[in-house]
Simulated assay, not measured.
Amino acid sequence: MDNQVYPCGRGPAFEACCEPYLTGSSLPKTAEDLMRSRYTAFARHRISYLKDTLWPKHQSSFDEPATARWASENHWAGLTVLEVHGGGEADREGTVLFEAKYLSGGKLVTHRERSRFRKKSGRWFYVEAITD
Rank of each mutant, 00 (worst) to 15 (best):
S72F: 12
A31L: 04
A77M: 11
T30Y: 00
T23R: 13
A77S: 11
E99G: 13
A43P: 03
R92A: 05
Y102F: 12
R114M: 09
A90F: 14
D132V: 09
R116G: 06
R123C: 03
A68P: 07
G24A: 09
S72Y: 12
G86K: 03
V84S: 04
L50K: 06
F42D: 01
Y21Q: 01
Q59S: 07
G122L: 07
T40P: 02
S48R: 15
S121I: 14
R112A: 08
S104G: 09
E128Y: 06
E73F: 09
K57I: 13
L97G: 06
L22Y: 07
E89I: 07
D52P: 09
R112E: 11
T23E: 12
D52A: 14
D33E: 14
K120N: 14
F125C: 03
Y126H: 06
A41L: 05
H111N: 15
T30P: 01
E19R: 10
V96R: 00
Y49R: 08
Q59P: 06
F14L: 11
A90N: 13
E15A: 14
W55D: 00
L27Y: 06
Y39K: 02
R69Y: 14
A77D: 11
S61P: 10
S121Q: 15
T80Q: 14
V96Q: 02
S61Q: 15
A66H: 12
Y49M: 07
P65R: 11
K29C: 12
T53L: 00
E32I: 00
N3V: 13
C18V: 04
H45P: 05
E128M: 09
F125V: 02
G106S: 10
G9L: 02
L82Q: 15
W76S: 06
A66C: 11
T40H: 04
F98I: 07
A100W: 00
C8T: 02
E99K: 15
